[in-house]
Amino acid sequence: MGPDNPRDGESRDGRTVEPGDARAALDDIRRRQEQSGMAELRHGLSPFYLTWAALLLFASFASFDLPNPWGGAVLFPGIVLVAVMVFAYLRRAPVRNKPSSGATLIAVACGLALVGVFRVLAGAFEAGGAPAPHVIASAIVVGVCLLLVPYGRRIAETRLRSGTGSG
């Protein structure tokens, strides 16, 4: 291996890289990744975004109780609201990290579980004869989600600190 190959212990400019220097550089990279992940977590779980996400989720689920032309009419404002939220989120984001495949998988699994719980609750309230089963079910689902946010935040922070939440 020649001097152009950094794998032989020398950098491209001919200096050798000491193991302590390499370890310090890697530790610095990990610390910066943790800092950016924590900043992204604080931004994404801020009260502003949580409030809008909760309202959007409630309106989307509760719209199942509306009569036929109006249930679908809620879809357009919901899509507009999602687009505005994504634009604002990306515009105000302190860091721009790509989500890892693990984070994406967790988000998809949580979303599917959320829809499943909503469908089961709505079905139970409908079978029980509740006047607006989807509104009641959506209020319960959104309320439980908001109660679980602090626990989810702690889990995400732990994953970030341990290094399993990145990449």
Results as ranks from 00 to 15, higher is better:
2 G>N: 14
3 P>S: 15
3 P>V: 13
5 N>I: 13
6 P>Y: 09
10 E>K: 10
11 S>W: 01
11 S>G: 08
12 R>K: 09
15 R>T: 14
15 R>Q: 11
16 T>Q: 02
18 E>F: 04
18 E>A: 13
19 P>Y: 00
22 A>T: 13
24 A>C: 04
26 L>F: 09
26 L>E: 14
27 D>K: 11
27 D>W: 00
28 D>H: 12
30 R>Y: 04
32 R>I: 14
32 R>Y: 04
33 Q>D: 05
34 E>Q: 13
34 E>T: 05
35 Q>E: 15
36 S>A: 15
37 G>Q: 05
39 A>G: 06
39 A>V: 08
39 A>Q: 10
46 S>E: 06
52 W>A: 09
52 W>R: 08
53 A>C: 11
56 L>K: 09
56 L>V: 03
58 F>S: 05
60 S>A: 11
61 F>G: 05
61 F>T: 05
65 D>S: 06
67 P>A: 15
68 N>P: 10
69 P>L: 02
70 W>R: 11
73 A>T: 07
73 A>Y: 12
75 L>E: 00
77 P>Y: 06
77 P>S: 05
77 P>V: 11
79 I>H: 10
81 L>C: 07
82 V>S: 06
84 V>F: 14
84 V>Q: 05
84 V>R: 06
87 F>C: 01
87 F>A: 13
88 A>H: 11
91 R>A: 10
91 R>N: 12
92 R>S: 13
98 K>C: 06
98 K>V: 14
100 S>H: 02
100 S>E: 04
101 S>E: 08
101 S>G: 03
103 A>N: 12
104 T>Q: 09
104 T>C: 02
104 T>M: 14
106 I>Y: 00
107 A>M: 11
114 L>Y: 01
118 F>M: 06
119 R>P: 03
120 V>A: 15
120 V>F: 06
123 G>H: 00
129 G>Y: 11
130 A>S: 09
130 A>G: 04
134 H>N: 13
134 H>V: 02
137 A>K: 07
140 I>T: 07
140 I>P: 09
142 V>Y: 07
143 G>I: 15
143 G>W: 10
143 G>C: 12
144 V>M: 04
145 C>S: 11
148 L>I: 08
148 L>R: 02
149 V>M: 08
156 A>C: 01
156 A>G: 02
159 R>E: 02
160 L>W: 11
160 L>Y: 07
161 R>V: 10
161 R>I: 08
162 S>R: 12
164 T>W: 13
167 G>Y: 01
167 G>H: 03
167 G>W: 01
